[in-house]
Simulated assay, not measured.
Amino acid sequence: MKTLLRIFLLTLVSVNIYAQDLDSLVFTKAKSDKKSVAKKTKVYTYQFTDSSLFKANQYISFVEVGNHKKAPVFFIGYDKKELITTSDFAKKYNATVAINGTFFDIKNGGSVDFIKVNDTIINQNRQEKNNIRALHHKAAVVINDYKLGIKKWDGSDTWENNLSDKNIMLSGPLLRLNNEDEKLDSVPFNKLRHPRTAIGIKPDGSVLLLTVDGRQQNSAGMSLFELTKIMKWLGCTSAINLDGGGSTALWVSGYGENGIVNHPSDNKKWDHEGERKVANVIFIKGKP
């Protein structure tokens, strides 16, 4: 009986490893559409049909910004009260590319996560019940001298306020750091498939601004476990999850009819019109 149980368990493990290898193969061999949008900056789109990736249809789009002195540089955009679409934020800041940022108060506006811009604190964290730190308060996108980085919560109550970085946007969960996958809790937010937004950094300093569409027949969305694999397969040694769901939007100047690359899900249609208004964005443009 014990021998049969061992054989059964080994079979399950082998099947799981094979499935992971197959997904990796499907992704790495997939062909993307790509277009140059600025110096050392390209937009990529992938369409997976016939349930070929993670046993589902998927649509992935991202902008890769090279670590080059002539490439566009990074900024945080925000509004303290008014909610604005990612595309309108982009036009407001004369951006080249913009992606939705961190979590926000959908009724009253403003970020629910710590944001600092040019050494000025814009928002403090809004605490969860029982003062337990939220999953999206345990990591941060930081920008110094127009270069983007990712940091991990150090366990202290005043971590974000003690950071010396000039520009900070808390978000999360953290997916990867220094070429190691972070341990993710098995909570519904992490396990269920949703539209997702993420930022990743490659070893050479290139940065990926990525969206995964979801809640659509053409794209199921991803769990954070699946998203972590995508970021790893794209070569990111560090990666962070941002606000997703109906907020997920990637805008590129001059792209398509309205600049929206992905298919925002808020209007429940497979088009580029369904943007949700948000409180903040990450954007790039030429260095001042």
Rank of each mutant, 00 (worst) to 15 (best):
residue 103 F to Y: 15
residue 101 G to L: 05
residue 79 D to A: 09
residue 109 G to F: 06
residue 114 F to E: 00
residue 90 A to T: 05
residue 120 T to V: 14
residue 86 T to M: 09
residue 91 K to Y: 03
residue 97 V to C: 03
residue 110 G to V: 01
residue 96 T to G: 07
residue 122 I to G: 12
residue 79 D to R: 07
residue 103 F to W: 12
residue 86 T to F: 12
residue 116 K to E: 02
residue 94 N to V: 00
residue 94 N to L: 01
residue 117 V to D: 11
residue 129 K to Q: 14
residue 120 T to R: 14
residue 80 K to H: 02
residue 123 N to R: 11
residue 83 L to D: 08
residue 114 F to I: 05
residue 111 S to N: 10
residue 86 T to P: 11
residue 124 Q to S: 12
residue 85 T to N: 12
residue 126 R to V: 15
residue 90 A to D: 09
residue 111 S to W: 06
residue 109 G to H: 02
residue 94 N to K: 13
residue 90 A to P: 06
residue 112 V to K: 12
residue 123 N to Y: 09
residue 124 Q to I: 00
residue 101 G to H: 07
residue 100 N to Y: 10
residue 83 L to F: 09
residue 110 G to A: 04
residue 114 F to W: 10
residue 88 D to C: 04
residue 104 F to Y: 15
residue 93 Y to W: 05
residue 119 D to Q: 15
residue 126 R to H: 12
residue 102 T to V: 10
residue 107 K to C: 01
residue 84 I to L: 09
residue 106 I to S: 14
residue 87 S to V: 06
residue 116 K to S: 07
residue 111 S to D: 10
residue 85 T to F: 10
residue 101 G to W: 08
residue 122 I to Q: 13
residue 93 Y to F: 15
residue 104 F to Q: 00
residue 92 K to I: 00
residue 104 F to P: 00
residue 81 K to L: 05
residue 80 K to D: 06
residue 80 K to F: 04
residue 93 Y to I: 00
residue 100 N to C: 03
residue 91 K to T: 08
residue 94 N to W: 01
residue 105 D to G: 01
residue 93 Y to D: 05
residue 105 D to K: 01
residue 119 D to R: 15
residue 82 E to L: 09
residue 124 Q to L: 08
residue 128 E to P: 10
residue 91 K to N: 13
residue 117 V to A: 12
residue 98 A to C: 06
residue 96 T to I: 13
residue 99 I to Q: 07
residue 118 N to C: 07
residue 94 N to D: 15
residue 99 I to R: 03
residue 108 N to R: 10
residue 98 A to K: 06
residue 106 I to W: 13
residue 126 R to F: 11
residue 86 T to S: 12
residue 82 E to I: 04
residue 120 T to C: 04
